[in-house]
Design a protein around this nucleic acid. Structure first.
Length: 490
RNA sequence: CGGGAUGUAGCGUAGCCCGGUAUCGCGCCACAUUUGGGAUGUGGAGGCCGCAGGUUCGAAUCCUGCCAUCCCGACCA
């Protein structure tokens, strides 16, 4: 176990917190519920951003930016939307401070805003208010826009990366001429998220749809990707919403179609957040620290020299410089840590904590033998290999590590996904072996709520392309046509 | 918003019951010896004891009030 990090079997949530702090991803800030994302953590976010941004652009989307502040009146226009977000909005009421004469800075009551401004919890309202001015004809459609931004939701209880008051995300907002086109967009973005989760984050996910209870406020249909964490709890990793004509109606966004008939515009919105970093940690890491998938690791390979004299270091450095150059030409991010203020053992521990996928150690012994020592973070195994052909070997190894991390997570999910058919078994599994429970449900919100009240388990999703089969609801025994996925969730 | 806990050096803590300006460890700085898994020795620096009042000759310690954070619930990406 790493120093200062509690074992994840002992206290999972403490382990998660310790890991984030010790690995230098983030720290607490003076503001309740808001975290400081440190350079190492931010570089993971930048990696995520870069990949997703490319995927969005390849599917025809452009980036834009809308204001942080939204007039309060905008929120009252879409009824279920305001109901969903009203309880967690920060509000700006004044625009000036003043000195009260005894050295205290106070709000200047004379500087009260005519209309209060809401710090965006999401941007549908200001964007649809804007789209109204952009859309007159079917020729103006579709509008395919994404924004990288921060949002604020005044949550009762926060958790580093998983639920902070302020968080970073991207939110896509698209406008379409037909329902079919909007649904296709919703599904396309869900597939992009799933592709990203599985092939970049090495995180297997279930694609599905939310029940009406769990839908986004203002959506007709919410699609999601659900992942399973190592403690058996589920995490919603991304959502894609089909908003129908709700926002177009609320903001009066009409267009003239090819038949010269006025119609409301069809909408989607979709987003993923810095929560993905939380998912990355919870899905793969261990008691020694983070385990980052090579494709998202800010440092993919770290090289640690082991030497007694400057002369040896020079010798090693010459070799490392040419190796680094070769690795960089293969787009592999490499760090050569030749600090002489830390001993090798301390560096080994540090990079394990930070989840660097591959470590290369080179000492005089290696230089004599023409070898290096390679240590994998995912398996914690070491091997001595020849310097000849090293760059290609590393390249292949990184790919293998990526696959292995995915496979491990996939196996875990498989072993912790269970079909249950009785209420007793359902409750027993939640307590004894938490994970995804695939069970029949009678399709009513009342039953869903009752199950939640009694077990804290929610319907994570109705998986896409779900097998249709006859069955009886786990709680009420009423007939059901398909199984849905239950779990306790973050 | 309910329940629980905690605020003492950068971090983790002792002291508090029984008042006398603060303990230990890690980290930090200097020098030396070290360097294939978290080095060792010697010397050194660092504190408005969460904030504001009160009691007292004297408060980290006793009293009152406040503030903040964390954890567990309900709410949520």
């Amino acid at each position: 176990m790493s120093k200062g990090v509690i074992s994840k079997d002992e206290d999972y949530s403490q382990w998660f917190n310790d890991l984030i702090i010790k690995s230098d991803l983030a720290e607490y800030s003076p503001v309740r519920g808001c975290m400081i994302i440190k350079p190492y953590g931010y570089s993971v976010w930048e990696k995520i951003q870069a990949v997703l941004d490319k995927m969005f652009k390849e599917t025809g989307h452009s980036n834009a930016y809308f204001p942080l502040l939204i007039p309060k009146s905008f929120f009252s226009k879409e009824a279920s939307h305001v109901e969903g977000f009203a309880k967690e909005c920060a509000v700006v009421t004044h625009y000036r401070l003043k000195n009260d004469g005894s050295g205290n800075i106070v709000v200047d009551e004379d500087a009260k805003l005519e209309e209060e401004l809401i710090i965006r919890p999401t941007s549908e309202t200001i964007i649809w208010n804007t789209y109204k001015g952009w859309i007159q004809s079917y020729r103006d459609l579709p509008i395919l826009i994404n924004q990288w931004a921060n949002v604020m939701r005044w949550e009762m209880r926060t958790r580093l990366f998983l639920r902070t008051s302020e968080f970073l995300w991207q939110e896509g907002h698209t406008a379409h001429a037909t329902s079919e086109e909007a649904v296709a967009e919703t599904e396309q973005m869900l597939n992009i998220y799933a592709d990203f989760a599985e092939n970049w984050m090495a995180l297997p996910v279930v694609k599905g749809r939310k029940t009406p209870n769990e839908r986004f406020a203002g959506a007709l249909d919410t699609y999601c990707i659900e992942a399973l964490m190592q403690d058996g709890k589920a995490l919603q990793a991304g959502t894609s919403h089909f908003l129908g004509q709700n926002f177009a109606k609320a903001f009066d966004v009409k267009f003239t179609n090819k038949e010269n008939v006025q119609d409301f515009v069809w909408a989607t919105s979709w987003g993923v957040s810095t929560r993905l970093i939380g998912a990355l940690i919870m899905a793969h890491s261990d008691d020694a620290g983070l385990v980052l998938p090579p494709k998202l690791a800010p440092i993919q390979v770290v090289i640690v020299p082991i030497y007694k004299h400057d002369e040896e270091l020079e010798n090693i450095t010459t070799f490392v410089n040419s190796l680094s150059k070769e690795l960089r030409s293969k787009d592999i991010t490499v760090k050569f840590d030749k600090r002489d203020t830390h001993r090798p053992g301390a560096k080994f521990a540090e990079y394990e904590l930070k989840g660097v996928p591959l470590r290369v150690a080179i000492g005089s012994r290696d230089m004599q033998n023409g070898t290096v020592e390679l240590a994998r973070r995912d398996t914690k195994t070491k091997e001595t290999v020849n310097q000849e052909g090293l760059a290609s070997h590393i390249e292949a190894l990184l790919e293998e590590i990526q696959q292995n991390i995915y496979k491990k997570a996939a196996t875990f999910r498989e072993e912790n996904t269970t079909e249950v058919d009785t209420w007793d078994e359902f409750k027993r599994m939640l307590d004894e072996q938490p994970g995804f429970l695939s069970a029949h449900w009678d399709g009513t919100p009342e039953t869903e709520q009752k199950i939640k009240d009694e077990t804290k388990a929610t319907i994570r999703c109705i998986p896409l392309n779900n097998k249709q089969e006859e069955g009886k609801c786990i709680l009420t025994g009423k007939p059901s046509t398909q199984r849905v996925l239950f779990a306790r969730a973050y």
